[in-house]
């Protein structure tokens, strides 16, 4: 089922087209990656989904219906530029932000109790934010984002600014949120996390979507017919080009480029006759490579 649809969204700032007819669909209970270089328009798109900015044309549909400001309460949004009131106490602040999201004080307190216990941060309740370290504040920020149990979570560059420990915690929490039924959209530069987490992506460049779809399918379609073969002795053949060949501890590791589009079994059949094959693996391009390639085009 489709949770969120963005249809032909256009946004123009004075003399600068920020989004040029952008469309995307986010299936329910999946993790969706929004990729793109700086200034591509990701944050503008995210702000439009959050009803912070209005599009010049185009619509955003949630569950097939036009988004209303009331729907925003069902979204948990962690902006790229994020922070907390420095002079306010952690507990008061979390409560305030939860109430702004439409939670009752009672519900908010209960949810906060659960999350503060889970993250073992109960003793921070009466501390001012300025007394916390950056990593501690990030945890609080994360809790306030997911506290109202939103159906849709939007994280803008969630891993930038988080230290590796918290970034890993975030990653695990994102996966758990998905297990609990949430749909997650996040924008990132970190391509490894895209491969680890995302089912679908959109790659935005120069205000346009240049690549969109399922991560596995995208990688397969960008396959360059490159294979990694580990064998007991060097291999040769006419139907492939040898890119590199190194011997290490009695195992020869070869990278080859297949010349024709033919079944892997035929190639493998000819190799088996030559020597003992330990590994035969197609090398799919990393998302990083695809990203760089698509943006350069």
């Amino acid at each position: 089922m489709i949770l969120l649809e963005v249809e032909n969204v256009v946004k123009q700032f004075a003399g600068h087209l920020a989004l040029d007819s952008v469309s995307l669909t986010v299936p329910e209970n999946t993790i969706y990656g929004l990729l793109g270089p700086n200034g591509a328009g990701k944050t503008t798109l995210i702000r439009i989904i959050n009803c912070i900015t209005a599009p010049d044309s185009g619509v955003v549909l949630l569950n097939g219906k036009r988004m209303t400001p009331k729907d925003v309460e069902r979204i948990g949004y962690l902006p790229e530029e994020r922070g907390l009131y420095k002079k306010m106490k952690v507990g008061d602040q979390a409560l305030y932000l939860a109430q702004l999201k439409g939670m009752s004080k009672h519900d908010a307190l209960q949810a906060l109790k659960y999350w503060f216990e889970k993250f073992e941060i109960q003793e921070w309740w009466d501390k001012k934010v300025e007394e916390l370290s950056k990593g501690m504040a990030q945890k609080v920020q994360f809790v306030t984002t997911i506290l109202h149990n939103p159906k849709l979570l939007i994280f803008d560059e969630p891993f930038s600014g988080f230290d590796p420990v918290n970034a890993d915690l975030m990653k695990r929490e994102i996966l758990e949120l998905k297990r609990n039924g949430a749909t997650i959209i996040f924008s990132t530069h970190n391509m490894e996390t895209v491969e680890d987490l995302c089912e679908n992506i959109s790659l935005v460049n120069l205000s346009k979507i240049v690549l969109q779809g399922n991560v596995a399918a995208i990688r397969a379609s960008h396959a360059t017919r490159t294979y990694l073969i580990r064998s007991s002795s060097p291999i040769t053949g006419d139907d492939f080009e040898l890119i590199s060949q190194v011997e290490k501890d009695g195992i020869v590791e070869s990278k080859i480029l297949k010349k024709q589009v033919e079944s892997n079994n035929i190639l493998l059949g000819s190799l088996i006759k030559q020597t003992e094959i330990h590994t035969f693996e197609e090398l799919l391009p990393s998302m990083n490579d695809i990203f760089i390639e698509s943006v350069r085009k």
Partner: peptide
Amino acid sequence: VQEKTSRIVEVIISSVRP
């Protein structure tokens, strides 16, 4: 200015109108 420099403003306007 404080809301802007502490970067909380966008968190808040995702809940209420500016």
